[in-house]
Design a binder for these strands. Structure first.
Lengths: 163, 163
DNA sequence: GGTCACTTGTAAGGTGTCCTGACCTTCCGC
DNA sequence: GCGGAAGGTCAGGACACCTTACAAGTGACC
């Protein structure tokens, strides 16, 4: 057994998750640089990712993104400055404002989603589609438990009489 | 199929990885808070994780941790101040210093590794040991490709006549 | 043996992303 | 109509990175 150095060097699971995350993000951002949306930053993701038809309240962004209202506010400020979203008053609550995608924002969102899907497919080719699908399945189950705030509500059964 | 709203709300893979990472880390840091090592911060991980018997050079830490020498230097400064590591001159190269664990550092390292292993086991119980093992296996393959700098060298065959 | 490119590490200053605490405005249940 | 809760902003700070620039030491090549 001379020269065998392996047993103790098992990288921690969180480290492995981080490597995969970083690699994925790098691939994503690199391609984003080549596009017309090169001024998008990672932190903008929580807005694009959770956007709804009618817009998002700051509080919602903060909750889903698991951060404070202040942080969410900064992200939104930045995105407003870049022209991806706009703040409109919430007709239902005069305290609140709705953050909504501009036209450019919608274009960026759909470009980004497409790119992410493509990269995932590419990883499927690289590591085996089944393996990546399994990875996703396991992670989805974990996320449902560990990050319920971020997971879209589980198909609310629409109890007759909208909202 | 009325009320099924799922298809478009597929969270991006990097988001799922992030949720799992965050959850794992939160569990880890929370328990660390209860221990005598509550002053350890996440960034210290890259030193503990890659530490070798004889110590690590700053350059090595930076490479393995995928960051600049300056950043690595700050982390080490901080850890020195907290008493987890010390800098000793490298006998082989007067430019370099070796970063080595103090006694307290060794205690912290082994406590941390133990805790991480326990949490992974706990996740195995929570989500199925096989599933977590599969997750690890897939991520290890991905890391070997995407983060070779961080993965311990693959058991270098010692080609007779040590460097 | 001297020169020169490279490596190791540090110094100074900046950025992005988050935080806490304090505050104002608006809403809503009693 | 009042008091507590919720939506949002302002000010200030922590942290983990970065870039640029540089001093000290190493080693290969003439």
């Amino acid at each position: 057994m001379i020269g065998s150095i392996t047993p103790p060097v098992r990288l921690p699971l969180h480290g492995l998750l981080e490597f995969a995350f970083d690699a994925l993000i790098e691939e994503f951002l690199e391609e984003l640089q080549q596009s017309e949306f090169r001024d998008i930053r990672l932190a903008h993701g929580c807005v694009f990712r959770y956007m709804k038809e009618q817009g998002l309240r700051l509080t919602e962004i903060a909750e889903r993104g698991n951060m404070t209202k202040q942080s969410a506010g900064e992200v939104v400020d930045d995105m407003v400055a870049l022209g991806y979203v706009e703040r409109v008053p919430d007709p239902d609550d005069r305290r609140a404002k709705l953050v909504r995608l501009t036209e450019r924002g919608e274009a960026a969102q759909s470009y980004g989603f497409g790119l992410l899907a493509e990269i995932e497919k590419r990883w499927g080719e690289r590591y085996g589609a089944e393996r990546i699908a399994g990875l996703r399945a396991t992670l989805e189950e974990i996320a449902a438990v560990e990050a319920p705030f971020a997971v879209p509500e589980p198909a609310e059964p629409e109890p007759a009489g909208r909202r």
